[in-house]
């Protein structure tokens, strides 16, 4: 769905001197615009605003002061928001965006009490997709992609079958088929599909994930070195 004013991802990167592999470019072209449309629990405009606030959080003065405090809860104030999202949603988006390492069950349960577990899970997914897309652009010295255009429609609004408490903060698929992280967003299946569609092409590549030796541009130890260092810089236990 590209035209002259909205080049494909592959074309954007080609103009910057990169030949992005087809599987990667097509995943971006498919899943990023979908975030401008309705999801499982949120409409397209709300998802677009979550993307905007995900980016606002990086320069938010309250987020900066909280990041320097022993506890983020010790610093009151208002976020530098530019959307009219509900304040509880703005706070959750900013926290997940720039201080995820210090989130807690108490925080998540309070947020879900305000907005419901479905919107919370979907929000986390949209924030994650935005970071994936933006960091990829930074890494290659290319501008971040524009906020997806709004697509009309209503969210599905149905609790997915087979979901419940598996010990995480949010409800998830009860059946464990793969790594826990692959079902983390399963309470929002459409958003989970976008997230997994992107991260699969960025990293795991389907069946390849199950092999300890890869025949790719980087060896598996090289990829996992980058992954481990990135996780450590984010102080992520998982």
């Amino acid at each position: 769905m590209s035209d002259e004013t909205t080049p494909s991802v592959a074309e954007t990167y080609r103009r910057a001197g990169y030949e992005i592999p087809e599987h990667l470019g097509s995943a971006h072209d498919r899943h990023w615009p979908a975030l401008g449309g309705p999801g499982d629990w949120l409409d397209g405009e709300t998802r677009r605003r979550i993307i905007i606030e995900t980016r606002n959080a990086r320069n938010c003065e309250l987020c900066r002061r909280r990041s320097e405090a022993v506890s983020p809860n010790a610093v009151p104030g208002n976020h530098d928001a530019t959307t009219d999202l509900d304040p509880a949603m703005v706070d959750a988006v900013h926290r997940v965006s720039v201080d995820a390492k210090r989130l807690s069950r108490t925080f998540a349960e309070a947020a879900m009490a305000e907005m419901g577990p479905g919107p919370y899970v979907e929000m986390v997914g949209v924030v994650a997709c935005t970071w994936l897309m933006d960091v990829f652009a930074w890494a290659l010295g290319v501008d971040e992609p524009g906020v997806p255009e709004r697509r009309p429609g209503e969210p599905v609004g149905e609790i997915p079958e087979g979901t419940g408490d598996v010990g995480a903060w949010v409800p998830q698929e009860l059946e464990k088929v793969r790594a826990n992280v692959t079902r983390a967003l399963s309470y929002a299946p459409l958003t989970n599909g976008s997230w997994r569609g992107l991260v699969n092409e960025h990293y795991s590549r389907g069946e390849q994930f199950g092999h300890l030796v890869w025949d790719r541009a980087l060896s598996r130890p090289q990829v996992e070195l980058v992954a481990a260092r990135t996780a450590a810089l984010n102080e992520c236990f998982y």
């Binding site: 986390v124 994650a128 994936l132 996780a231 992520c236």
Partner: peptide
């Protein structure tokens, strides 16, 4: 970039 998303999924959902 993929892991910048992944850490937020993991830490955001506990």
């Amino acid at each position: 970039s993929g892991f910048n998303g992944l850490v937020r999924v993991a830490d955001g959902t506990g």
